[in-house]
């Protein structure tokens, strides 16, 4: 029994080593944070439009349909990375995307959409970044999945891509669709 005490350091050390190895093996990035807003209603917002042709975004616009809300900015490099993919979703009608233009100059944002294309149903301008803070955004691009009741169901940090969409977002959309249909 007394000798078991001498095994203590070994057991403790090995446990620690497992905790060191886990995040590396799983490829976890410690910088990615889970959202505190999951299962919560979307915060109040009323954003002015970016383009003359499309209205801005308020709560009403975001309730009633399963949809993506994408925070983007023309000055953000990774946003450019995901833009092609957003264009494909926009064209394919899988799920509508609402854009929130985060702390951007109107001119620059307009030119950006003109150059790269506009995948969004509606675009609202978050000039001072307060709406983003209400959503718990900590760095653009971030993409939120909203259900029909206007609750946040999923949040992705960083640029979207086909593989991430298929792995992470599509399954949630399918479950949500089933729930409302069945």
């Amino acid at each position: 029994m007394r000798k078991l005490i001498y095994l203590g350091p070994l057991v403790f050390f090995m446990t620690t080593a497992v905790y060191f190895a886990l995040p590396i093996i799983k490829g976890k990035d410690p910088r990615i944070l889970p959202s505190a807003m999951i299962e919560k209603n979307i915060p109040d917002l009323d954003l002015p439009p970016l383009l003359e042709t499309k209205p801005g975004i308020d709560n009403q616009a975001l309730i009633g349909e399963i949809q993506l809300v994408n925070f983007f900015s023309s000055w953000c490099g990774p946003c450019r990375t995901e833009h092609d993919f957003l264009m494909r979703i926009g064209k394919s009608n899988i799920v509508p995307i609402y854009g929130i233009n985060y702390k951007d100059k109107q001119k620059a944002a307009k030119k950006w959409l003109l150059d790269l294309g506009d995948p969004y149903e509606r675009i609202g301008r978050d000039v001072d970044g307060r709406t983003a803070i209400d959503w718990g955004v900590y760095g653009v691009p971030e993409t939120y999945l909203i259900d029909k009741q206007g609750r946040i169901q999923y949040r992705h940090v960083g640029p979207l891509s086909e593989s991430i969409f298929k792995e992470k977002i599509s399954p949630v959309i399918k479950v949500l669709r089933k729930q409302t249909n069945g």
Partner: peptide, 17 residues
């Protein structure tokens, strides 16, 4: 480096036990 850590410290602690 973790492998080195486990090998040396783990080994030493086994001998300690």
């Amino acid at each position: 480096i973790l492998a080195i850590l486990v090998l040396f410290v783990g080994g030493a602690l086994i001998m300690f036990a």
